[in-house]
């Protein structure tokens, strides 16, 4: 594996609440970066409830898992699953029949250290909750992406997670708002980006609009970022650029009108 950058970014994607789109975020940002030629590894730490393999469409390629690595049944290299689309993308699968206490923070840190020489980006898919699984997931990371939805329960959990990341001395915590519905914000029935910023007071990394095609791409095991006609893909691509340190304006979140869809399908940029 060829690295493009001297340092490695170790990014934990977390949320507190389940179902807000952590795994989808990990799969898409990792795929987006791999598509640009960066070497990327995604680590599924949702032990006992794994999903990342399914979202990436790699479930049939899994042989070993992270618990087997820490228990010495296989090497780290043997457990890494190579993506079928991008040679620079690898996945370290979670174990499905074990639980979060079967791995320690020290072991996660050791695995990350072993991965750093080969990878530009290490993404850690954090389980929901604030227990051992969360502590394992943040142990080795130097950056955190907090995913939330514009919805009171998700915001409350995000706030708790941000508080815990700050107590753990995280300096780089950014917010990703997923599943925003601009038309509902306009009609006064959904929290806006400004509202979320007011409550959570952390830097905004990006906004992903609600997009029906995410369900379809998940069904197929193909990350949505590969479908250039979707608005979610556009949003994820922008976030990939921001992770690379490039300034990209927030996309205009107008309602997806017939004309906008047509324009996008004809290949015009928004």
């Amino acid at each position: 594996m060829e690295k493009k950058t001297p340092d490695s970014q170790v990014i934990v994607v977390t949320s507190g609440k389940g179902g807000v789109g952590k795994t989808t975020t990990v799969a898409n940002l990792a795929t987006g970066l791999a598509k640009l030629g960066y070497s990327v590894v995604v680590m599924d730490l949702d032990i006992g409830l794994k999903k990342l393999d399914l979202i990436l469409g790699l479930e049939n390629r899994v042989i070993y898992d992270i618990i087997q690595v820490v228990e010495g049944e296989c090497s780290l290299k043997q457990a890494l699953v190579k993506d079928k689309r991008f040679p620079a993308l690898y996945m370290l699968p979670a174990a499905q029949t074990r639980n979060k206490d079967d791995i320690t923070t020290t072991q996660v840190e050791a695995i990350c250290e072993e991965l750093k020489p080969d990878f530009d980006f290490i993404f850690i898919d954090c389980p929901a909750g604030i227990e051992q699984g969360f502590r394992n997931a943040i142990a080795a990371a130097n950056k955190a992406i907090v995913v939330t939805n514009p919805e009171v329960s998700a915001v409350r959990d995000a706030d708790r997670i941000i508080g815990m990341l700050e107590s753990a001395d995280f300096k780089d915590i950014k917010l990703l708002v997923n599943r925003l519905r601009p038309e509902m914000v306009r009609s006064g029935d959904m929290l806006s980006i400004e509202d979320l910023m007011e409550h959570l007071c952390i830097e905004l990394l990006g906004v992903v609009p609600e997009d029906r095609s995410v369900v379809i791409s998940t069904n197929r095991g193909e990350p949505i970022i590969l479908n250039e006609h979707s608005s979610a893909a556009h949003a994820f691509n922008n976030i990939v650029q921001r992770l690379l340190g490039n300034n990209v304006d927030l996309m205009t979140l107008e309602e997806d009108s017939f004309w906008r869809k047509l324009k996008r399908n004809l290949g015009f940029k928004n």
Binding site: V152, D159, R160, V185, D189, L191, S192, D195, E198, H199
Partner: peptide
């Protein structure tokens, strides 16, 4: 605006987050 569910959500969040923190 005052009656919108968005405003209601904001008011509830302000209170609950202060207490949570």
């Amino acid at each position: 605006e005052d009656n919108s569910s968005r405003n209601k959500a904001n008011d509830r969040l302000r209170l609950v987050l202060t207490h949570d923190r």
